[in-house]
Structures are given as C-alpha cells and as structure tokens.
C-alpha cells in the first residue's frame, strides 16, 4: 500500500510479514475490517523475516476492496508536485553566490539526477538477477543446509554500514561508478535474498506435496507452483531493492559515482544551504516516487489467484 494515504484495508499480505499474524483473526465477525498490515519494513527489507522465530502467517480470507483507488493514484504525486514546486519557487527567490551557483550550473542538477536514476535502476536489475535465483537455489533440497549459513551472513551484512562497505570497495577497485555500483548491489543483495528465501519457505508445503503427488517433476513444481506463488514476494523484493538502492545511491558520491549525493555533500562542505536543500528535496522526492511506482507495480502485477480469498 502506498505510504502517505489512508490505506484501505486489504486482505492480502506478504509472506515476509510475520509480525502481523493474528490480526486478521481478531474480529472474526467482520473480516472486512481485518486489521491493517503495515508494509513499512517489508518495503525496505528491515524486518529480517523469521528473525524472531515466528512462522509466517497463513493467507487470510478477507474480501479485497478495489485495489487501486483514486486517492492512491493521485495523493503522492500531488504532494510531490506541490513540494517540488514550492522548492523551485523558493530556489528562484533565493540569492545564490558564486559557490552555490557553481554547484548547480551547467545542468549539474539534471546530470546528478540522471546519474542517480541510472545507479538505482542498474543496481536494482543486478540485485534481482543475483538474489532471486540464489534464493531459489537455497531452498532446493540439496542446498537447503546452506541456507542458515547464508542467513547468518545476511544478518552480519545488515550490520555492515553502507558507507564503510562502499569505501572499502573504492579502495579496492579505485574511484568510479563501477565501485559505487558494486557497493550498492552488495548492500542490497542480502536483504532481498533473505526475503526470497523466507518467502519460498513460507509456501504451504501441502501445495508442493500435492503437486508432486500428481506426478510433477521437481522443475515442474518449481515452475508451475512455487514460482507463481512467489510472485508477490519477488515483487516485494523489487520494491525493497529499489528503495534501498535509491538510498545507497546517495552515498555513491563518496566513491566518485556521482548522483544526488553530490549536491547534498557539496551543500554541507561549502555551507550552501540552498544547494543542500535542493539536493535533499530532490532525493526525498525521487525515493518516494520510486517507492510509489513500485507499490503500484506490486498491485498490478500480482496474480489474480493470490488476492486473499476473492
């Protein structure tokens, strides 16, 4: 659900959202008002799934209201437009000295914005083609013993500060976009991988067994049962990766990778608040926009059969 609007109660929930279990069962008489299920940390990969040892929730039968409401489509873009417009107007009025003008001249803002988007998109692509197949491999029977090891590494990875990782890569590979990209990818692979593994594990084992029972090959089970059931999870992974990468890409500047971090950092070091605010507002707007687009994609691309109960 989009952050920032009054979320309509929906019945479906994600495999990673273990903490929400039980809510929907609170008022059995009114399934329509089944509790909300916060999407926050799933969207950013912060709730290490299964971390507290709870089992993932069973899919809850609850009627789904209209999935995409007008508010949802218009609220966030409207707010962003207003904020950007206000910033632009304020920026026009602000008197800039030569240092501030230097930082934004020659289409520098536009260049940084494009770099930022480029970093985000490319890194997200690589994160997904690394993390999702790896997640599928780790849930296969033969490699399953390796899963706890990978999860442990993922936990330590979460504790690694992004800026430190990036700096180490820059020292190792030299300054430039490549080091920044690898850093962004490395930072996002582990959370997405952990989410994928947790989600695939959460698939009802009786479904897999039933598929095997009617004579499907392991590959057939994977392709025709497990992967379709895991689509919401993969979409959640896309969103997680996008949101994380927009954030990490602000740090790419410190590795010579450009991006909007350049405006923020030069605003801080040169003490030019106008540049700093412009860079920050653009970054915030980009992050919220990316998250909003990903949430729409999540709603639109989800297979119909998985809409809880309807």
């Amino acid at each position: 659900m989009t952050r920032g609007d009054g979320p309509p109660p929906e019945g479906e929930r994600h495999a990673g959202e273990h903490e929400v279990q039980g809510i929907a069962f609170r008022d059995p008489e009114e399934p329509g008002t089944a509790g909300p299920h916060p999407r926050g940390a799933t969207g950013t990969g912060l709730d290490g799934p299964g971390r507290d040892g709870q089992s993932p929730p069973a899919p809850t039968p609850a009627p789904v209201r209209r999935r995409i409401t007008w508010q949802k489509l218009t609220f966030l873009p409207a707010v962003l437009t207003v904020v950007l417009l206000a910033t632009w107007l304020w920026f026009r009025g602000a008197d800039l000295d030569s240092i501030a003008r230097n930082s934004i001249d020659d289409g520098n803002v536009w260049l940084r914005l494009r770099q930022h988007i480029y970093l985000t998109v490319v890194s997200t692509f690589f994160v997904l083609i690394i993390a999702i197949p790896l997640g599928i491999l780790l849930t296969r029977r033969r490699l399953r013993p390796a899963a706890p090891v990978v999860m442990g590494v993922a936990n330590v990875g979460q504790a690694t500060p992004a800026i430190g990782l990036l700096a180490l890569l820059v020292i190792w590979l030299g300054i430039g976009t490549r080091a920044a990209l690898i850093g962004i990818i490395a930072y996002a692979v582990l959370p997405v991988l952990a989410n994928t593994v947790a989600g695939l594990k959460a698939i009802d084992p009786t479904l897999v067994e039933a598929a095997r029972g009617i004579g499907m090959s392991p590959l057939g089970v994977l392709r025709r049962v497990e992967l379709p059931l895991a689509v919401p999870l993969i979409l959640a992974g896309v969103r997680t990766a996008l949101v994380l990468n927009v954030g990490t890409a602000t740090l790419a500047y410190f590795g010579g990778g450009g991006g909007l971090g350049d405006l923020i950092a030069s605003g801080i070091t040169n003490q030019r608040m106008s540049v700093l605010v412009l860079g920050s507002v653009l970054t915030v707007a980009l992050a919220l926009l990316v998250d909003w687009l990903a949430s729409l994609a999540e709603l639109l691309l989800r297979p119909r059969g998985l809409e809880g109960g309807t």
Binding site: M1, G40, G261
Partner: peptide, 22 residues
C-alpha cells in the same frame, strides 16, 4: 502512524540529515 513512519523510512538518511542541517 504506520504509513507515516513507513514513509519516513523510505527517505535516504543522507537527505534527511541534509534537510535537518538548515
């Protein structure tokens, strides 16, 4: 409360700090 906190969570930390400095 949940949606607004989740929104803040999507904001990159460097940008948040950048907005707080002025």
């Amino acid at each position: 409360a949940v949606t607004s906190t989740a929104t803040i969570l999507t904001i990159p930390s460097l940008a948040m700090i950048g907005l707080l400095i002025p």
